[in-house]
Simulated assay, not measured.
Amino acid sequence: MGGTGTVFRAFLKLGLTAFGGPVAHLGYFRTEFVQRRGWLSEADYADLVALCQFLPGPASSQVGFAIGLWRAGWTGALAAWAGFTLPSALLLLAFALLRPVLDGPLADGVVHGLKLVAVAVVAQAVWGMAPSLAPDRQRAGIAVLAAAACLLLAGAGGQMLAIAGGGGLGLALCRTGNAPGAMQMRFNVSRTTGLLCLGGFALLLAGLPMLAALANNQALSLFDGFYRAGALVFGGGHVVLPLLDAETVARGWVDEAGFLAGYGAAQAVPGPLFTFAAYLGAIGQTPPNGAVGAAIALAAIFLPGMLLLVGVLPFWNGLRRRLWGQAALRGVNAAVVGILGAALYDPVFTSAVRGPLDLVLAVAGFVALVNWKLPPWAVVVALAGLGAILARAGL
């Protein structure tokens, strides 16, 4: 099948070069592992992508973890995750550590430019997700209700209500279509292992908040906040933004300007967007922060998605053939559009756009991404540079 070192080198190459977000990452994976290396068939890869899109968590990272598990066992799974994740995590940690020494009007201009990048990128995400995830009246209505829940009930509570409500409304309103066929791939994961992982996922999700409160320990609170964000992200990628905002900015761990600047910078690095957590863990105002905080946040945000993936693998063929599961997922995915739409307004737009010129730059960034098809890193460089120029000109 191939060794752990081969898996690590293959994913390290992707971790250094895979720009463009989770959808683009899945395209890179298909090119590398289906077409070039022949590790998986087209049908196996499509089944694996369907599984990971069904689950909460970072879909592209889950697909990579599963390919590593399929190819070289548990060490291969960890090697795949490390190779794909660490390059962008280290780059964002470096940005976090250097940010305090980058002071003055020019640095402020760059940071403001990065905040405008966030407006363009999140608007692009909403624009791209809405036609596929909320294509009919029922799901569009679920998206509107989810946005209302998030805007009227601030913090994690509104987002959890939106996700739960979306699933419930999906069960009632979205029972259409046929169940897909059985998955052909077979992983060496027993039902006992699967149940232990599912139990661990639930135990940590329910128990970490109580443990953190009883211990009054910031490291535990940090792990709890990022674990919860990773556990509730349906759709991966940019959907993590509002959840992380609720777990960091709303709790006073990170200021809004630093949060959005880091999110903008995250668009300029390859690999999974979830590595934004490393930046947030590093800039936290209360220890542990720095490299230790980055490591805690990074481990916590990826752990729930991987526990769920391994937990569901032995049971997936039975689950995916049940229409109720597909209906609930349709509702949750529609709610994701509303959650991200609410985040586009607050905090992204309200924190970044201070006047007409900012709006013009944000719209220009959006057009560059959607119509001109420029890569995100090019838009990052352009808007950060324009932010520095305008700051120097006093605008």
Rank of each mutant, 00 (worst) to 15 (best):
Leu161Glu: 04
Ala130Arg: 15
Leu106Cys: 10
His112Thr: 06
Gly128Arg: 15
Pro100Trp: 09
Met129His: 04
Phe187Arg: 12
Gly177Pro: 08
Leu161Pro: 01
Ala172Gln: 12
Met185Asp: 07
Gly128Glu: 06
Ala118Thr: 14
Ala120His: 13
Asp108Thr: 11
Leu102His: 11
Ala130Pro: 04
Gln138Gly: 02
Ala118Asp: 04
Val122Trp: 06
Gly128Ala: 14
Gly170Met: 04
Val121Pro: 08
Gly165Phe: 09
Leu169Phe: 08
Gly168Cys: 14
Asn178Gln: 15
Gly177Ala: 05
Gly128Cys: 07
Gly181Ala: 14
Leu151Thr: 07
Gly170Phe: 03
Gly167Thr: 07
Leu152Met: 13
Ala130Glu: 13
Val122Gln: 05
Pro105Glu: 06
Gly109Tyr: 00
Ala162Ser: 11
Ala148His: 06
Gly155Arg: 12
Ala156Glu: 11
Gly168Val: 10
Arg139Leu: 06
Pro131Trp: 05
Gly104Cys: 05
Ala164Met: 11
Asp136Gly: 09
Ala149Arg: 03
Leu102Ile: 08
Leu114Trp: 12
Arg175Trp: 09
Leu114Tyr: 11
Ala118Cys: 13
Gly141Arg: 01
Pro180Ala: 03
Arg137Met: 13
Ala156Lys: 08
Val126Ser: 00
Val121His: 07
Met185Lys: 03
Ala154Val: 02
Gly113Asp: 02
Leu102Gly: 12
Gly109Arg: 00
Ala123Ile: 00
Leu145Trp: 01
Ala182Asp: 15
Val111Asn: 00
Val122Leu: 10
Ala120Gly: 13
Ala172Val: 10
Met185Gly: 01
Arg186Asn: 15
Pro131Cys: 05
Ala164Gly: 07
Leu145Gly: 15
Ser132Lys: 10
Gly166Glu: 03
Ala154Met: 01
Ile163Lys: 06
Gly167Ile: 09
Leu133Pro: 03
Ala179Gly: 08
Ile142Val: 15
Gly166Ser: 07
Leu145Gln: 02
Leu173Gln: 01
Pro105Lys: 04
Val144Gly: 07
Ala149Ser: 14
Asp136Met: 01
Ala107Gly: 14
Arg139Ala: 04
Leu116Arg: 09
Ala162Ile: 07
Leu114Met: 13
Gly167Ser: 09
Cys150Asn: 05
Leu145Lys: 01
Pro180Tyr: 04
Leu153Met: 12
Pro135Lys: 03
Ala123Leu: 14
Met185Phe: 13
His112Asn: 03
Gly109Glu: 00
Leu145Ser: 03
Val110Ser: 06
Leu106Ala: 15
Leu171Gly: 11
Ala149Gln: 10
Gly141His: 02
Gln124Tyr: 12
Met160Asn: 03
Val122Met: 06
Ala164Lys: 10
Gly155Lys: 09
Leu102Cys: 13
Leu116Gln: 06
Ala172Lys: 10
Ala172Phe: 12
Ala162Gln: 06
Ala148Gln: 01
Val144Trp: 08
Cys174His: 10
Gly155Pro: 03
Gly157Ile: 01
Leu161Gly: 12
Ala140Met: 13
Leu116Phe: 04
Ala149Asn: 06
Leu169Trp: 02
Gly165Gln: 12
Gly181Leu: 13
Trp127Phe: 15
Val126Asn: 00
Ala147Trp: 04
Gly109Ala: 02
Pro105Thr: 08
Gly141Val: 00
Val144Asp: 05
Arg175Pro: 02
Lys115Leu: 13
Asn178Val: 05
